[in-house]
Amino acid sequence: MPVHKHFQFSIFNSQFIIALCAMIFASCSPIEEYDNTPTGNFEALWNIIDEHYCFFDYKADEYGLNWDNIYRRYKRKIDDGMSSMGLFEVLGDMLDELRDGHVNLYAAHDVARYWDFREGYATNFSEEIQTHYLGTDYKIASGLRYTILPDNIGYVYVPSFSNSIGEGNLDECLYALALCRGLIIDVRSNGGGNLSYAETLAARFTNERVLTGYICHKTGTGHSDFSEPQPVYLESSNGIRWQKPVCVLANRGSYSATNDFVKIMRTLPLVTIVGDRTGGGSGLPFSSELPNGWSVRFSACPSFDVDMQHTEFGIAPDIRVDMTDDDRARGVDTIIETAREILSR
């Protein structure tokens, strides 16, 4: 009876010993350690971003981002004798090259940030003017502030998705607004928060499970190492569901989870997005840290819309409207008025 050679595997066989050694050394692969010096902190930060940031390829196409070039440019600015403040400024400038509001460097004295996604544009929102609509006797259901406008249109302002929005809050809010002929959901200058709260709110506006986009994650250190994008669905809520027209108001300050909320809402049939382009921020942020104790946040998992397009640089509205100076002077919110007009048709 023939004996296959690969079954003659003995623990005294040299091949076995070599294979065992290879396995043991593979499992002992070193974890890179950095010195707590300006150079060490620079190297740590550059490598953290290099190995984990998720928009290199997309941003190379959009505006020519080249992270290796950035290393060479900023490495020249690093000197081990430089001050902590000086290092913070250089590292903050380096991160600015990513043009990403989800990228921050946190130190005890400051937070390096990129807010050009909103600071370079019209604000299209005024809290003072908003009080002309909300009044002072509006209701608050956890993260929702709501009232009924004189033309029987419900107005819900969501200042942040960091405040919890529970099913009970939504039931009460929608029940109170049930007789309104339309609904305005204002997410202007809402900088985001918890994705699940945004989805909980959106689930009140669909009667069926709908595809809202895709998400993937990095599978390795390479700039193009990504998993297969997985579909993300929105399940309809079992609570009160809104069945009439809805306008979602957005501006450049609608960022991160709010950008995701707008991305979801625009897939729904009775919804019109009104206002300005959203600020974007479609990467799920992760955190890491540097040897000197500074913390860094960066986009790690990209999400896409239903057409597999990035929304990192924002989502265009269905009806593009800016607040005009004349309206501002009269205490009128042009964007709210446009939404009221749409819902009154």
Partner: peptide, 15 residues
């Protein structure tokens, strides 16, 4: 989790 996979994907989205 995978290299850059979030727990949001694993537990909330069920991926």
């Amino acid at each position: 989790p995978d290299y850059g996979q979030s727990y949001y994907e694993i537990f909330y989205l069920g991926q």
